[in-house]
């Protein structure tokens, strides 16, 4: 099956968007592969690869407007970068640095959700805030197929349906929650059909087709912005690699499965289309890869140039103001760490 069997160039998407979809997907892949190598070399910590899911993350985020919110999980650092989070922050995050959590003030991205599905009620809250304030702002919450089993998923959908708020729930259904396959996660055929139970629109798209994802999210944003309420979008996709760098997928799935998905690779397919429309060629490809490799190299260098972590940060953002009790504890820890080798105290 050719997912992007588009013989004719689409008329509803500009060349700029087409090229952006492509270059951002390649950017994520270059970044992702480097991160896996960095983890193996001990230069960053445990890392959850996203390879295979580039179309989901890039096309959904590019269909948002700058004012809209991205509400990510641990695997959606790709979407975060597309929406404006600096690459080195993502690297620092996976290298266990507090600096990696910094999100620039003008970038509407929420913090990475680690406990599954907890971000979805937040997305509903963001959307409710926009509605209460009368501002045109949509929140898009990412989640995995596994997350659809958590109560938070159902509560968030129900709230969104009841309040009719501008929120999009975007499921990257990569068929596995660590080792548990989709058919053991739910007895429904799709995630999309669950939306009906909450009075929410549900659609299912091919998550390997950047244009299909882009169009689905663009239309959901338009509807939400026009007061048309929430949408659940399920994008069918696959993670080629391990759940995280500490996982061994050979324990639970046949490698031929990934091979079959690679044949429908979102990047390869879009490249073929771009070439056939005269928008891309080998020279552009070489140039892009060189540019991206050096972008990643520079970001890695910035991550590695960080000095040792400052123990004062442990206390900085626990409360609005430090209590005398914590101030004493900070002084005590400073004294403890004075003769600590390897700190700059």
């Amino acid at each position: 099956m050719a997912d992007t069997a588009m013989l004719r160039k689409p008329s509803d998407v500009t060349d700029d968007v087409l090229l952006n979809l492509y270059t951002e997907m390649v950017r994520l892949r270059v970044f992702d592969r480097r991160c896996v190598r960095l983890q193996r070399a001990g230069r960053i910590g445990t890392y959850p690869p996203l390879e295979g899911q580039e179309a989901c993350q890039v096309a959904s985020t590019l269909a948002l407007r700058r004012q809209d919110f991205v509400v990510p999980t641990y695997r959606d650092y790709g979407a975060m970068m597309v929406h404006g989070v600096p690459m080195e922050h993502i690297l620092m995050y996976w290298n266990g640095r507090a600096e990696g959590c910094e999100i620039p003030d003008d970038v509407n991205v929420f913090p990475i959700a680690v406990p599954i599905a907890t971000q979805l009620p937040h997305a509903a809250g963001l959307a409710w805030a926009a509605k209460l304030r009368g501002i045109d702002q949509v929140a898009l919450g990412f989640f995995g197929d596994g997350a659809s089993s958590e109560g938070d998923f159902h509560e968030a959908l129900n709230f969104a349906g009841v309040f009719q708020i501008p929120v999009i729930f975007f499921c990257e259904n990569n068929q596995y929650a660590i080792s548990v396959p989709f058919r053991r996660q739910t007895a429904t055929q799709t995630i999309a059909e669950k939306a009906a139970a909450y009075g929410v629109r549900g659609v299912r798209v091919n998550g390997q087709d950047a244009l299909e994802v882009y169009r689905a999210v663009r239309s959901a944003v338009e509807q939400a912005a026009a007061g048309g309420g929430p949408t659940l979008i399920e994008a069918l996709t696959y993670r080629y690699g391990a759940h995280t760098t500490s996982d061994d997928p050979s324990k639970y799935r046949d490698p031929s499965e990934a091979d079959a998905w690679r044949e429908r690779d979102p990047i390869v397919q879009l490249r073929q289309s771009l070439v056939s429309w005269g928008l891309w060629d080998d020279e552009a490809e070489t140039e892009l890869l060189e540019r991206l490799e050096s972008e990643v190299t520079a970001a890695v260098a910035r991550m590695e140039a960080l000095g040792p972590p400052n123990p004062d940060h442990l206390f900085d953002c626990v409360y609005a103001e430090l209590s005398p009790h914590l101030e004493r504890q900070r002084r005590a820890l400073r004294a403890e760490l004075k003769d600590w080798e390897g700190t700059d105290q």
Partner: peptide, 24 residues
């Protein structure tokens, strides 16, 4: 450790008491 949120990985070894701190 102090009454602060469990820290990011790169500084957890400073936050958790080690045998030198326990000895003190």
């Amino acid at each position: 450790p102090p009454d602060t949120v469990y820290p990011f990985a790169q500084i957890e070894d400073e936050w958790i008491p080690d045998s030198a701190q326990v000895l003190r």
